[in-house]
Nucleic acid binder design. Structure first.
Lengths: 271, 271
DNA sequence: TTCAAAATATGACATTTGTCATATTTTCAA
DNA sequence: TTGAAAATATGACAAATGTCATATTTTGAA
């Protein structure tokens, strides 16, 4: 619910409801112009560095122009929610810089992280494309700058550009592959293996800081637990065990990866 | 590897490799005409009852004709494999009648079922669309009649028909939603809940026999275990427990659903 | 800075679930 | 039909993991 809080948020929400209507869309654009000075920086899609890493990397210049004119940029603090499970999508979000987690709430109120997004990734598109409510929530896990592209712009792009459809299809395929791999591992791998695997995954996903060993992403023990699919206490114990085995070291939430081959071995990953 | 075994299978395999080439594709069509009398029935896409339930339900008549001329039908016995993890896809399979399981092999040689398909569903498309090797295998869990549509036909359809792309996107979105729900449940629900949920899922997926209580799908205890994500013995014990609690009854692999509200309660599913 | 709240850490213990052994039943091919 | 192999069933036990209690440390707002 967070992005729709307060005075500004309510206007944004109104904009979302009306964004399929060209006249109201125009109003939204004007409104953006007025408000953007205060709250957010408007990026320029033509020269956007993260566009080249995204599903928009191959679209025609005049389509880029349309997106640029209709998009909406926003920044999020660490911990701020982008959208919530159960809400209706009105467009997709493109991550400009920063880090996002996609998570679902379980029966006992425990969270489960199902996906991550970084620069160049797109979030909130699954529900929008399927014409459904969001089945997951999205929350910034770092300071994040994001652009919102209205639904109608995306659908008209699908109509006009088959190559864009293929990009979307490939993105969904890739997500599905990873999800099915997670199913396999949750069903069959013990927690220790999954923990080692998740740490290596985070290293691949978000990379390392300039020192070459510290992970760029910083998560709480609880968040790590909801990624691995275990209790927070178990996650803490395993991290301590890995530290004592010199596979990694940490100071608070800053984790250094010391021994990649060792972690691969614990994760039971070969070749 | 099964579909490519024997004299007939080797020709089929050859056909797959050559099917992007129009001349060889023609040869394949001629070859089909000769061989089909013996092994398989060639269905007619124009009047195909399962087409209306599929991603092909809205395509233009002349596109249906192209598919009809290039497709290839095959029947599978229960237990026969359609494609194997690691192989290269050359097209997609449309289930005409029957039941298919999509499964992956885990590290310890244990299988995990990740998806099912029935009449009107499409299988083997994820890897093909992504341009990757199959990440899962597909096996018939009942007598199944299936049609193969070559890769080039699908990609030209994506080029020509934006609506078909949207159908594919919706299919992938739906699969992804279910996969992420499975992740949540495998990570957070105890085995007993997952077992009850899986039985209710199978009832929804494949329906009941004319008697109104017997499940149409028949799986071994081991297969049920690989669906739920547990050991075979645990699956057997839980089924016996459900039987003694009069939630269901069974005679071998034929399971009767007796008490749906009771199963919903065990599965911890409300409203 | 200071203090309360939140996060992290650790021990003790209970519960769940998997593994192994071994019956018993069913299936299917000779 | 018959017998061997596979599938199903059940008990005993061990291992993995979660839960609860509680201590310690860190964080962030007043």
């Amino acid at each position: 619910m967070l992005p729709f809080n307060g005075f500004f948020g309510r206007f944004l929400l109104l904009g979302f409801f009306l964004c399929d209507n060209p006249i109201f869309l125009l109003n939204l654009v004007l409104f953006k112009k007025i408000m953007s000075k205060k709250e957010d920086i408007q990026h320029d899609c033509e020269h956007c560095h993260s566009r080249y890493k995204s599903i928009f990397c191959q679209i025609a210049p005049d389509e880029v122009k349309i997106i640029n004119e209709n998009k909406w940029c926003q920044s999020l603090e660490k911990g701020q929610q982008l959208f919530a499970e159960g809400a209706y999508p009105h467009g997709i979000f493109c991550v400009n810089t920063g880090k996002i987690k996609i998570h679902q709430m379980g029966d006992e109120g425990r969270e489960q992280i199902v996906r991550f997004a970084k620069e160049g990734d797109v979030v909130g598109y699954r529900a929008m494309l399927a014409g459904e409510k969001y089945s997951s929530s999205a929350t910034a896990i770092d300071t994040t700058s994001i652009c919102f592209i209205p639904k109608n712009v995306i659908f008209s792009l699908i109509e006009k550009d088959a190559n864009f459809s293929i990009q979307l299809i490939k993105l969904l395929s890739s997500n599905l592959k990873h999800a099915e791999e997670s199913i396999l591992h949750l069903a069959q791998k013990p927690v220790r293996e999954r923990m080692a695997e998740s740490l290596l995954f985070l290293k691949e996903m978000y990379g390392l800081e300039p020192d070459g060993i510290t992970m760029s992403v910083s998560l709480s023990r609880e968040e790590i637990a909801t990624l691995v699919g275990t209790a927070t206490e178990t996650a803490i114990r395993l991290l301590s065990e890995f530290k004592s085995k010199k596979l990694l070291s940490f100071e608070g939430r800053k984790i250094q990866i010391i021994d990649v081959p060792g972690l691969l071995k614990v994760a039971n990953i070969h070749d």
